[in-house]
């Protein structure tokens, strides 16, 4: 993936988890560092508990279209395990790097007891066999530890930057946080970002 141009990143999760926000933050930070970035986003109805994804096309050369062709993702960042697997099956390839949150958001069929959520073993097996490197992060637990589950996405952004798969240094992402978040929320978010960063660095 080193030097891939375009670098294709998919951020996936369930509507409401904040995949749009972190895609925007990463996109803006990357533009600031001299990249062309196109983000194709899922909006609207799917934001009500549906499967959502953002496609990021990052290039030094040119502006790319908003959709990544099947099998062409370089990095998949998942805010929810089953959504990560859904995207991996469609856009993955043997060289893909996957970073996923471990905490499920149950699809309704699971919540109401008519379907089973896959076991951790099944998820880990699929992640490992379908990627070149996979990270499973307890991001929601870290966010809850910091006081709010809504920080999960920022923890995951920290893990992504920490994994070194984006042409983006931690301080460059932090600068973006500083410029786009209101002052009273900054501290909270910086903490979340650094916890995600540390989580990956420690491994």
């Amino acid at each position: 993936m080193e030097g891939a141009d375009p670098l294709n990143v998919i951020v996936t999760g369930v509507g409401g988890q904040g995949n749009v926000l972190i895609s925007q933050l990463m996109g803006s930070a990357l533009v600031r560092t001299g990249h062309h970035v196109t983000i194709g986003e899922t909006y609207g109805a799917s934001q009500r508990g549906g499967a959502v994804m953002s496609h990021l096309r990052i290039s030094r050369e040119a502006q790319y279209g908003p959709l990544i062709p099947h099998g062409q993702a370089n990095v998949i960042l998942g805010l929810e395990p089953v959504e990560t697997l859904r995207v991996l099956g469609q856009y993955g390839n043997p060289d893909v790097t996957v970073i996923t949150n471990s905490r499920p958001v149950y699809p309704l069929a699971v919540a109401i007891g008519t379907a089973q959520y896959p076991s951790v073993e099944e998820i880990v097996k699929a992640l490992e066999e379908l990627s070149s490197k996979a990270w499973l992060i307890n991001a929601t637990d870290i966010a809850l530890d910091l006081g709010a589950s809504i920080l999960t996405n920022i923890v995951m952004a920290g893990a992504l930057v920490g994994a070194g798969v984006l042409p983006l240094a931690p301080e460059e992402f932090e600068q973006e946080l500083q410029e786009s978040l209101p002052a009273d929320r900054l501290d909270f978010n910086l903490k979340a970002f650094r916890r995600g960063l540390a989580e990956v660095k420690a491994r």
């Binding site: 109805a45 508990g49 099998g71 089953v82 959504e83 697997l85 099956g89 390839n93 379907a115 699929a126």
Partner: peptide, 26 residues
């Protein structure tokens, strides 16, 4: 689009366990 071997493996490993996610009220 996807290497046939990878596609086959992906289907085997994720096909049965990735449920559809219907939208609904929050």
């Amino acid at each position: 689009a996807v290497e046939p071997d990878y596609a086959k493996k992906a289907q085997a490993l994720t096909g049965g366990i990735v449920q559809s996610r219907m939208i609904g009220f929050c």
